[in-house]
Design a protein around this nucleic acid. Structure first.
Lengths: 117, 117
DNA sequence: AATGGTGTTATGACTGTCGTACTACGACTG
DNA sequence: CAGTCGTAGTACGACAGTCATAACACCATT
């Protein structure tokens, strides 16, 4: 087992999604692909987690949805864009991450890279 | 607000507790004090969270409880010590933390220390 | 016609954390 | 000596985020 449990990443799903939405509006399937790629498959977000994050964050005013009235075909997608409030939330989360790192690292023992046991 | 939300630290409460139990057997109240001190009050674990972590981890075989038949007075305490299985779990969690850091940091923008906007 | 990739939604369960409240003992203090 | 503070733990029910499972729908390729 060398991937990441959800309890550990919990609380950063929103941050990840918002980070990607800060670059450009996007939709569920694309976001999930990007997370997979960026983390080299170390973290793969579950569909249900992703979509429920969307609805939660929309309810909180962090993102806004709009339909892709793309000229072309019938692929129905719901796009999301980040709001100002969402940007602020994201920045707060980034600050919180710095703190969290500090806190957690007090409780982590690093193994010797050339351990001899 | 400059402390840490529980969703973010969730999944590391166990790790923190186990870290402290690796140094010596201990009990709830002491553990909670130590976490508070070590993090300079940046993180304060809730009683209920702590004690439910104890019962969960004992059930999972990561820790064992024993009563303090301390010679002295009637202070009733339940001590816990870490098991071999608990040590392994802890080490796994440390490895996972390294991974998690890598993963999350892909999605974090660091603010310029001398930002000029 | 079947499969695989794209794209989303619904439902109900589970788990860890939390708020609130309570018990209990000892020591200090006004 | 009643009240408060620090120590130490437990009970209960609620809640939020994640998950497993499943289904729907369209398109392209085989």
């Amino acid at each position: 087992m060398n991937s990441i449990s959800s309890d550990v990443i919990r609380g950063y799903n929103d941050t990840m999604i918002l980070y990607l939405l800060m670059q450009r509006p996007s939709y569920g399937y694309e976001i999930s692909k990007q997370i997979k790629q960026l983390t080299q498959e170390k973290y793969i977000i579950k569909e249900t987690t992703l979509y429920s994050a969307f609805t939660r964050m929309e309810k909180n005013g962090y993102i806004e949805s709009f339909s892709s009235d793309e000229e072309g075909s019938g692929k129905r997608r719901t796009y999301y864009r980040i709001t100002e409030s969402g940007k602020n939330f994201y920045k707060e989360k980034c600050r919180e991450w710095i703190l969290t790192k500090e806190v957690v690292e007090h409780f982590i023992l690093k193994e010797e890279p050339y351990g001899n046991n």
